[in-house]
Structure formats: structure tokens, C-alpha cells
Design a protein around this nucleic acid. Structure first.
Lengths: 192, 192
DNA sequence: GGGAAACATGGTCATTTGACCACAATTTCA
DNA sequence: TGAAATTGTGGTCAAATGACCATGTTTCCC
């Protein structure tokens, strides 16, 4: 169960057995059915989330009811609504499972204790924050500068394996284009 | 000169006189002419930048030569290329003055020493990183979900005073729309 | 296993957007 | 100050995109 998470941790820093034990002992394991929600708009994001298996999606709904996907979180990635988690205020975003998934959760107070007690975890956490910033920049640049076709290409090239596991309408939502446009792009590509 | 920066600092935390002195003593003051560059693509971002007066723009250029503005930095804001600064690798982005500007610069090693010696500065720095993440999320959501008109409205409403100081083509670049579309939006609004 | 839901694709059409061009007004700075 | 560059606006046209609808297929899960 937890072994894949431990492998993940060890690949980033060499934690001692007791540190690993400590981190895992405070984790809550949970299984999510397809489309099951883990955080809904208006709720407070009380946990850090690590995906062991499956894919989560992080999305917002807007006035007309449409969904906009901010992020996909496949195996071995973390997710949460940062702002809601930091400030413990109602979230603007939703987190739900794309497919049947296994996740680990840490309550905020527990995780903060771990961060304080395990410097290597703190370092890892900051590293993840930095990467989040870098990739957000890239994403913004991409939405500003790339054509729909380029966005799709980029997505396929940078998220290996992911596109095949996602329904097209979610990919379209993530890329900010219509399902129709995405279908057209794929059609054009298949004839080359 | 430095007084407006000191006022800024004091508004976020109560630094002692010697801390203020220390922070200011390592700052390099610089004046930038309109359109003068502070960081060019391919260079390493060696400084933290604080804008005392004027506006900087942070942009990327793409294959066809067009510019895409990621961020404007007016008075009392910080800027840099985070990834280039953190890793001291060549930057993908450019930073230049929109109008005649006054900035303060800190070399990375100096700033790191300040962060280590002045916990309140460290706290402020982390707070700014958090806000960066929150606003990046908002920006991504906006590019995904808003119409050009909504994007413009949002920009005008959330950046008071800024639009009036920017040429329209830069606003268009920031919003990811063409100058033509922006002109049309403004035209339509003026007839209501 | 089978009924229901979700999904991928395609057609048509109206709308939006961008590209290209010209021109007048404003601003810049040498 | 005055010439040159920048800026804002508008016209026209073609292309890209989205909305809406229908259909056949696949997937899900009871």
C-alpha cells in the first residue's frame, strides 16, 4: 500500500526509517470511485493530498456551469487548493477523481508538525512549491502564445501517458479549447 | 530615495532600524529609461528586483517574434525570473521598463544572507511566494474561462490605475488577445 | 450480461477573431 | 522645438472557433 509512496519519498531524499514511519503513520488512506469528489467549491481544503494510483483533476466551475480544469494529478504527485489550505478559507476549486484512485491525506496540523520535525521533508516541500511556480509560468505563457494545435501537442509531449487515460472533453477543458476544436485537430493529425 | 521602500517594508512587518539599514545597504539603485532592458532572454537573472517608481514588464518572445507579457510590476512590487534566479540558469523571459523607472536590486548571495539573518524578511518573502501562486491560479483560470471582454474588465478592475499608464498593445499582449479585439471592446463600451 | 450513461465524431452555420492596411493624433526625445 | 516614432482607431476580408444537433460506439456498473 504505502510502499509506492515510500519509494517516491526515497527517490527525492534519503529519509530514515523512523522518519518514513512518522510520515506514513499520520497519513489517511482513501479510495475514490470515478468522479468521486475530494474537495468541493466552498469547502475548506483541510488536507494535503498525494496520489498513489489513478488521476485527480482540479477544476473550477463558472457562472454558466462549465468546468475548467486547472490541473491533473496522476500517480506520485501532490495536490490541494493552496490558498484554501494555507488560510483555511472556503475553496474556489474542486478536486475529484477522473478514474478510480487511491490517495493519501494528511490533516494540515499533522503535516505542519512533520514539516517542522523533518527538515528533508521541508526541503522537498519547498522544491515542489518552486516547481509549481515554474510550471504555472509555462502554462500561462502557453495559453497566451500557443495555438490550440500547439497546446495539444505540448500537452501530449509533456504529460506522457496521461492523454490516453483522459476523456477528450477533459483535455479540451484543460487546454481552454472546445471539444469540437480538439476533435478537428486530432482528425487533421490522423490524416498525416 | 529609499524611504518609499522603507515605508513599504514597515507596512508588512515591523523591522528594526538596524534591519532596515542592513537591507538597504546591500541594495543597488538603478534608473531605467523607457523600454530599457533589465534582463534579457538567455541571461541569468542575478538579482531580486523591487520597483520604487515606474512599471516593469516581464515578457517572453516566441518563434514568430511576437511578445507575450506575463506580468506587469508597478510601484511597490517585486519581480524577477524565479526559475533563472533560483537555479542561476539562462532565463527564458525578459524584463524591461515600460516607462522611466527606479528600481532596487539585490545580488542573490546578498539577499540570501538577508533572508537568513532577518526572519521577518524570510516570512515576507514566503508570503509573496504564496501570493504569487494564488494569483497565477487566478490568471490561468481567467485565460481558460473568460471572454476577451471579461478579461479586459477584470484587468481594469483588479489593477487600479495601471491600464491608464500602459499602451493598449501591451494590455492586449498581457490578456492574450489582439490589439484589434481590444480596440473593438473599448469601442463597444464607449457606446454604452 | 445488459441497459444506461458517457464518449468521439461529424455536419452546418453564425460569430468572433486576427491579419493586413491606412491614417490621424499623440508622444517622444535629440 | 520639430521631425520621427509610437499609438489608437477603423475598414475589409478570410479563417478559426464555438454552438447546436445527430449518430454510432464504447464504457460503465448494477
Amino acid at each position: 500500500m504505502l510502499t509506492s509512496f515510500q519509494t517516491y519519498l526515497q527517490s527525492h531524499a534519503s529519509f530514515t526509517d523512523s522518519e518514513l514511519e512518522d510520515i506514513c503513520a499520520t497519513a489517511i488512506q482513501r479510495t475514490l470511485q470515478r468522479n468521486e469528489s475530494l474537495l468541493q467549491e466552498g469547502q475548506v481544503c483541510r488536507h494535503k493530498i498525494f496520489v498513489i494510483k489513478g488521476i485527480l483533476r482540479n477544476f473550477a466551475t463558472v457562472a454558466d456551469g462549465s468546468e475548467h480544469i486547472l490541473q491533473f494529478s496522476p500517480e506520485n504527485t501532490w495536490t490541494l487548493d493552496v490558498e484554501s489550505y494555507d488560510k483555511q478559507t472556503p475553496s474556489q476549486f474542486n478536486i475529484a477523481a477522473v478514474e478510480r484512485s487511491e490517495v493519501l491525506l494528511w490533516a494540515k496540523t499533522d503535516f505542519e508538525r512533520l514539516l517542522a520535525e523533518i527538515p528533508k521533508l521541508k526541503t522537498l516541500s519547498q522544491e515542489l512549491i518552486s516547481r509549481n511556480i515554474y510550471s504555472s509560468r509555462q502554462r500561462i505563457l502557453s495559453t497566451l502564445s500557443a495555438t490550440p494545435e500547439e497546446k495539444y501537442e505540448e500537452f501530449v509531449n509533456t504529460q506522457p501517458g496521461l492523454p490516453a487515460r483522459l476523456p477528450l472533453h477533459m483535455i479540451a477543458s484543460y487546454l481552454g479549447i472546445s471539444l469540437k476544436t480538439l476533435t478537428r485537430i486530432r482528425h487533421a493529425q490522423s490524416h498525416r
